[in-house]
Amino acid sequence: TRVETATETAWISLVTALHLVLGLNAVLGLLLLRWQFPAHYRRLRHALW
């Protein structure tokens, strides 16, 4: 059971790390998009709101 718990903890930390990386990538991607295409982003925002 100790090995199972260790594997579980490893999986949880792995999934958490993946989520963090994906979240960071999403934020960075959005920031890059805003920086690269400000006009396009503004138009998109007007369409959404």
Rank of each mutant, 00 (worst) to 15 (best):
S13R: 14
A10L: 13
R43F: 03
L24T: 04
A6H: 07
L18R: 01
I12F: 08
E8L: 09
E4R: 02
R2A: 12
A26V: 09
A10C: 12
E4G: 03
L14V: 14
W11H: 15
V3S: 02
V27F: 08
S13Q: 11
G29H: 00
F37H: 01
L20V: 12
R45E: 03
A47F: 09
T1G: 03
R42K: 09
T16V: 15
V27H: 01
R43N: 10
H19E: 13
H19F: 15
L20R: 02
A6I: 07
V21I: 08
A39I: 09
G23N: 04
I12R: 15
L44D: 00
L32C: 09
T16W: 14
L32S: 00
A47W: 11
A6F: 08
T16S: 10
N25K: 14
E4Q: 09
L14S: 15
H19C: 15
Y41R: 01
L14E: 08
L22S: 02
L31I: 09
W11A: 15
V15N: 14
A10V: 13
R2V: 11
W11S: 14
H19W: 15
V3M: 00
L48S: 02
G29R: 02
A39E: 14
R2E: 13
T9I: 12
V21A: 02
A17P: 09
L33A: 04
L22G: 03
N25R: 00
T5Y: 04
L24Q: 02
L33R: 01
R34H: 02
W49S: 06
G23A: 09
A26Y: 02
Q36S: 05
R45D: 02
E8M: 10
L44K: 01
E4M: 05
W35V: 07
W11M: 11
W49P: 02
S13K: 15
G29Q: 02
V27A: 08
R45A: 11
H46Y: 04
L20E: 00
H19Q: 15
L24E: 03
T1W: 05
H40G: 10
G23W: 10
L28Q: 01
R45T: 10
W35F: 06
V3F: 04
L33V: 10
L28T: 07
R42M: 08
F37N: 02
G29Y: 03
A26F: 10
L32P: 01
A17L: 13
L33G: 01
H19I: 15
A47P: 03
V27L: 11
R45H: 05
H40C: 12
L18N: 02
Q36K: 12
L24D: 03
W35I: 06
Y41D: 02
T16A: 11
L14Q: 10
W11P: 12
P38M: 08
E8C: 08
A10T: 13
W49N: 05
W35N: 08
L31E: 02
R2I: 12
L31P: 00
A6Q: 09
L14Y: 14
S13T: 14
R2T: 10
T1N: 06
A39Y: 07
E4A: 05
L14G: 15
E4T: 04
A26P: 07
L32M: 09
A17V: 12
A39S: 10
A26Q: 02
L32Y: 05
A10Q: 14
S13W: 14
S13E: 12
L28C: 11
W11D: 08
L30M: 08
V21T: 00
E8Y: 11
L44V: 06
L20M: 07
H40Y: 07
P38F: 05
L22M: 00
L31T: 06
A17M: 09
R34M: 13
R34P: 01
A17K: 08
T9P: 06
L33M: 09
R42E: 12
L31D: 01
T16Q: 13
L44N: 00
H46K: 09
T7Y: 13
T9E: 13
W35C: 09
R45L: 12
E8Q: 13
T16P: 15
T1Q: 13
V27D: 00
E8D: 11
T9G: 09
I12P: 11
Q36D: 02
L28K: 00
Y41F: 13
H40E: 05
E8P: 10
T9R: 13
V3I: 09
N25S: 15
Q36M: 05
Y41S: 03
A47Q: 06
L28I: 10
G23R: 03
L44P: 01
V21F: 10
L20A: 11
R2Y: 12
L48Q: 01
L31M: 04
T5H: 06
T9A: 10
P38G: 06
L48N: 01
A26L: 10
V3N: 03
G29M: 11
R42D: 12
H19Y: 08
H19P: 15
L24S: 04
V15P: 15
L18W: 13
R45F: 07
L30W: 13
T16D: 05
L30R: 01
L22C: 01
L18K: 00
I12A: 15
L48W: 07
A26K: 02
G23I: 14
L32H: 12
V27R: 01
H40V: 11
L30P: 02
P38Q: 06
V21L: 04
A17Q: 04
T5V: 07
T7C: 04
L28H: 01
H46E: 14
